[in-house]
Design a protein around this nucleic acid. Structure first.
Lengths: 206, 206
DNA sequence: GAGCCCTCTTGACGGCTGTCAAGCACTTCC
DNA sequence: GGAAGTGCTTGACAGCCGTCAAGAGGGCTC
């Protein structure tokens, strides 16, 4: 295994991975628009630069493609609040910026979020999806936990609940806000902001 | 419109409604097993005593059948905690019996619950499902709210959050417990019990 | 008892699905 | 410069889908 061969292999792998990522992005776009139930491989291909056959060149089957998409999506969004956590200097600042960011991501990417909830629900039926979904769910939990522990720290307090419960609470609020936002009541965004903002203090105590 | 005609008409409507309910039950069974995405009308019919054509005799199309099922399901489960609310005499009793019941319904009907989450998520994509889903979601919210207001009353306190937020929190906890329970970790049930039990007091304050 | 209506079955339709084999264009290697 | 291999397209396959028309069976009314 000489250096050249190593490089070539790595380049090949990198190229294939890049194409996989590119296809995953087309797939995520389509899935976000149509939902898991109604998205076909041909439709994914139509939203990409390639024909439908290429999907079976890079992925064994549909479920493997979807799983790859879930993991790819995870990498994009799981650091969403890290900058806020790193740069906020007071509890009040973190509290307000977290609520802001929550509203922002709901505004900017409602389709990606409903896709996530769709896939997570599908994992209740399809065992093959479950592991990938549980992994990303865990990483989202840790993402939230970083916010809460930092918020507690800045407040001179401790989180009152464990990471999983804390995540479940906030996730419930966010999922509800998403459904309301998609029905376009117009009130979902400020409501979410208020709820998140009000909720944070009750998640910690001295 | 003589009494006889009225009776006949009512009888006919009642018979048709009874058949619709019967088909809805077969549909709910199938949907709970396979999920919205993978359930076909033929499969629903195979799980009933009838052939697939009969579904279009009683329902205009698939989405109308599903909608009917959602509403039918709602009627079954929306009074689940009312007996507990009516007969509990202390806050502690209500608190423990609510947690018990939560675990019981997760144990007995995991398929109906994952179906509900499936349909609610589908409503994020399909506008035709949305109204029925929002209605049942609202009635679930009221169901929870009856528990919480009674719990507050028995505690000599007031709910701290509005009905919608309270429901969102508990729903988040329950949805997470369901996913964990379906992966069969074995710890989901006691965890749900503990979480619900611990959460109730923080939803009220004097 | 003929005709009608309510229920339900059967069979077919056009269309869409995931999958895969065959082959084309292009690059890389000996 | 032929050979081998990679990347992608095309077209076909078997099968399932929702939908609906045609009609059978049986109870009802007149």
């Amino acid at each position: 295994m000489n250096p050249t061969a190593g490089t070539v292999t790595r380049t090949r792998e990198t190229k294939a991975d890049a194409r996989r990522d590119q296809l995953a992005e087309s797939a995520l776009m389509t899935l976000g628009e149509r939902g898991y139930a109604k998205t076909s491989l041909r439709e994914i291909a139509q939203n990409s630069l390639f024909s439908h056959g290429v999907l079976h060149y890079y992925f064994d089957n549909k479920i493997e493609l979807i799983t790859y998409c879930v993991r790819y999506y995870k990498a994009q969004c799981v650091t969403r609040y890290d900058e806020i956590v790193a740069t906020s200097t007071t509890a009040d600042e973190l509290r307000i910026r977290f609520a802001d960011k929550l509203v922002e991501t709901l505004t900017d990417e409602p389709q990606m979020h409903r896709l996530w909830y769709d896939l997570r629900t599908q994992a209740m039926f399809e065992v093959e999806l479950r592991q990938a979904v549980l992994e990303i769910d865990k990483s989202l939990e840790m993402m939230i936990w970083r916010v809460i522990t930092r918020f507690a720290e800045l407040s001179g307090a401790e989180p009152t609940l464990d990471a999983a419960t804390t995540y479940a609470l906030l996730d419930g609020v966010f999922e509800k806000a998403l459904l309301e936002h998609l029905t376009d009541t117009g009130t979902a965004l400020p409501t979410l902001h208020t709820r998140a903002w009000s909720l944070l203090p009750s998640l910690i105590s001295t």
